[in-house]
Design a protein around this nucleic acid. Sequence first.
DNA 1: GATGAATGAGATTTCATTCAT
DNA 2: AATGAATGAAATCTCATTCAT
Lengths: 161, 161, 161, 161
Amino acid sequence: MTARRAQLIEAAHDLIVAHGIAGLRTRAVAAAVGIDHSTLHHHFPTKADLIEAVADRALAAFRPAEGPTQTLTEHLRHLAALMTTRPDLFTLMRELDLHATRDTAIAALMGPRDDRWRASLTALLPHPVHADLVIATVKGAGNHPATAPAVLKALLDLLRK
Amino acid sequence: MTARRAQLIEAAHDLIVAHGIAGLRTRAVAAAVGIDHSTLHHHFPTKADLIEAVADRALAAFRPAEGPTQTLTEHLRHLAALMTTRPDLFTLMRELDLHATRDTAIAALMGPRDDRWRASLTALLPHPVHADLVIATVKGAGNHPATAPAVLKALLDLLRK
Amino acid sequence: MTARRAQLIEAAHDLIVAHGIAGLRTRAVAAAVGIDHSTLHHHFPTKADLIEAVADRALAAFRPAEGPTQTLTEHLRHLAALMTTRPDLFTLMRELDLHATRDTAIAALMGPRDDRWRASLTALLPHPVHADLVIATVKGAGNHPATAPAVLKALLDLLRK
Amino acid sequence: MTARRAQLIEAAHDLIVAHGIAGLRTRAVAAAVGIDHSTLHHHFPTKADLIEAVADRALAAFRPAEGPTQTLTEHLRHLAALMTTRPDLFTLMRELDLHATRDTAIAALMGPRDDRWRASLTALLPHPVHADLVIATVKGAGNHPATAPAVLKALLDLLRK
DNA sequence: GATGAATGAGATTTCATTCAT
DNA sequence: AATGAATGAAATCTCATTCAT
């Protein structure tokens, strides 16, 4: 059943946000949706599969913001808004970015996304390095959710000068 | 003997950089310096103590760059240079930043450091939010060591305009 | 399965009688019933839980002898008989009594039992201190199973004079 | 140095009383007298040797009370007084009695003492089984220091009737 | 006599995964 | 789809003991 899968992905998402990927326990995920932990393996053969599914869903949540039709202002404002309404998404991304360093399956998901993101940013900016600057700042701003929106706005102002 | 302690800290540093804090194994640390894993506990009662010592030493390596007497240009150039010569330091910082979210002992080390860093940046910049912008960008740039120096330079140019 | 639990409790009982609570090894308990030692934790999350279950079962074996409806003669004869047929029970009790000094969970099991025992003895004896005398003697007689029944009989004779 | 030995024995005595033989740590004993734990092995090659020395000293403290020249009244009064002034001695005895079950070296110390004790009691009492009764009650009374003196007095009264 | 470093055996506990039902 | 029992590999930490200094 695909509803169960969705439940498990959401529970895993929340637990990763709360305890990190390293602190994720399949038992806790199963318990959160009220099934036995061995049943979880019916839906996701392995823990890595579950994490991949979580990454996949989280990446999808970002996609609208990364479309090529936006202006830079729209793009950064959208991200700043997302940081306020969905801080969990950025917490998760930090986890996944770090995890990607050592897990090729996750890297295979994250890498292309960053490439697409960089490509659409490059189209909006005069200097290609500014695409990397935006990406670095957005990722780094996730460390401090409180100041993140202001930081993105400041970057936008600098880039438009 | 304090030499042994230093050896263990360095081995743990390398292993965290290679496998992450989550992937750190006390046995591996002990093996790396050629002692029994139980002897490690003679020097560091607990694994957390060892990680703290690693964090402490890494933070010390940054301190010279964070002194209040520098200009912004010097500061960012120093960091860019460090990213090239000591990329391990930035990998470690990403691990520690994430770890600090859930480990108060590490948070107690990292927090004050960021505060000091922010304070000295604020003294060098017209708008306080730019201090946060620099910190976010430096932290985020660690994800992509290849483009990091160029990104820092681009940020510097924008801030000096 | 509750049969497995019962098996484990019995094996633990025997091992405590043989090697003491201090000498109890979870591995040995698991091995005695032929399962992996990690499976034991499926049935008893912690070693303390297992010991508690052993204490609980042993206390239950005494309960019939401590009922309030008996005469003192019946009571002491029953205990003397038990000392001969089930000396392991008294060995275990000595272990648990000593353990209760430092383990509040065990103390919480043993304390009320002694209180009930004292209450029913008090009802059978003219002087309340004689209840404590009986309890002390029964507990102390466990040290020497060979002379224990004769000792209890001698005490009974003195109390009936 | 024999003063150091005495210090170590006393510290071990106190720690056994506080944490039981099972909870005795040589490190704690050494720390209590302010020396390194490896130095302890200079005075007592093995932990068992230390425990034996503790047992030996404790037994000596009882010896005056067990001399053959006393009357039963004196004997029990002396023990009752000791229970009040030196409850630690009885706590220790319970530990040692239980330990003797599995440690032949301790058994070799405790056995002869009980034999001598029984012999001198037998000389003071009409029925030999009363010697065992007294011993059982004294040992059992140690469980409840609060009621112990009254219990011994009650036993004395019964035996003198 | 004393120290600190080292050892090695071991103990409990955790956890993803498998399998029979 | 689901369960519960079982597994096995591993991980941290403990502790008495030894040894060189």
